[in-house]
């Protein structure tokens, strides 16, 4: 008898989606070969983790039977290692790799997923947006040009608030007005911005059918991006059908500023009751040695495949998803 239990060994992705993934990989590699961007590999196991307070590292250990047992973090992105390659004079590079984030599981999140990440020395943020648009439009066979909108204009348009100037209480009131009930009454601006973005704006973007670049982020959401003269982060996010596909920066190259951000991250982690994460000293040394002015972007390939195959959950594009709730 066929029951759901004895079919549990089978892949959740269909054969046609698996074929689509293989084609996608081939076309991506073809594109970067054409552009003379070098494909690289860096280790998945890292001695330093990601300090970002909103990202949780998975950990493992090597040599568990010996006295020299070494703890490792599974990379949350290959960013630190790839910047070390840039500082060492690699020129433009890309990588397709698996990355890991603890606790991220849902229709559009998997604790293990595939990133396409690439770096362009000599590009500014706008030149990189152009290239992302060209590549993704080609892969997705999109004819309409992308919409580009600043983070502030996005919130003005869909919510009617200024995300940077308006009072936090106003942001909270707008969340209530849109019928969102939330367990916590935080007084942090980014909490309410993230809530409005994920609950109201992203669903609205679903209907556009075009690529949307959001750029000029608040400085508090800079992560590893430079802050420009207007006090805004040189960061963009790419959306398609309400799905966030890519996150790009004009890369912070100042080692001292980078150290301050890592330390701030760890302080913030402490206040959230999260563990401290060792700072990547090798990255800081590389920045101090000199990172060429570069723009870089990470693009979620599983989500891209989801859009390409017109499916609605990552389960349908992953062969054997882990950590799924259903």
């Amino acid at each position: 008898m066929v029951t759901s239990a004895n079919l549990a060994w089978r892949p959740t992705a269909s054969l046609s989606v698996m074929q689509l993934r293989a084609q996608l990989m081939a076309r991506i590699r073809h594109y970067f070969a054409e552009q003379q961007v070098l494909e690289v590999e860096t280790p998945i196991l890292q001695q330093a983790g990601n300090t970002d307070p909103m990202i949780d590292n998975l950990q493992c250990s090597y040599g568990a039977h010996g006295v020299l047992e070494q703890g490792y973090y599974l990379q949350t992105s290959p960013e630190y290692a790839m910047k070390r390659l840039l500082a060492a004079g690699s020129g433009p590079i890309y990588q397709v790799c698996k990355v890991f984030r603890d606790g991220e599981s849902g229709r559009r999140h998997s604790p293990e997923f595939t990133l396409l990440e690439w770096y362009r020395p000599g590009f500014d943020l706008y030149a990189l947006m152009d290239e992302v648009e060209e590549l993704v439009s080609r892969l997705m066979a999109l004819d309409d040009g992308a919409v580009r909108i600043t983070y502030t204009d996005l919130f003005q348009h869909f919510i009617g608030v200024d995300p940077i100037q308006d009072e936090v209480t106003l942001l909270r009131n707008h969340a209530l007005k849109f019928g969102i009930t939330v367990s916590e009454q935080s007084d942090e601006r980014d909490f309410w911005l993230d809530l409005l973005l994920s609950h109201i704006i992203e669903p609205e973007l679903k209907t556009l059918g075009r690529l949307v670049f959001v750029y000029d982020y608040p400085a508090t959401q800079a992560a590893l991006a430079q802050i420009n003269a207007d006090g805004l982060a040189e960061r963009f996010e790419l959306y398609l059908d309400g799905v966030e596909l890519a996150n790009g920066y004009y890369e912070l190259a100042d080692g001292d500023e980078q150290r301050r951000r890592f330390v701030n991250d760890n302080n913030r982690r402490r206040s959230l009751g999260k563990s401290q994460v060792p700072i990547d000293e090798s990255l800081l040394m590389a920045l101090n040695a000199g990172l060429p002015g570069s723009a870089g972007v990470a693009l979620g390939l599983d989500r891209l495949l989801m859009c390409l195959s017109k499916t609605t959950s990552l389960e349908e594009v992953l062969t054997f998803p882990i950590g799924c709730r259903t």
Binding site: G106, R107, H199, E244, N247
Partner: peptide, 15 residues
């Protein structure tokens, strides 16, 4: 219905 949502590098929510 349970969904995990998280904008970019931001706060993760369970909706």
């Amino acid at each position: 219905d349970v969904d995990f949502v998280k904008p970019g590098k931001g706060q993760a929510f369970c909706r």
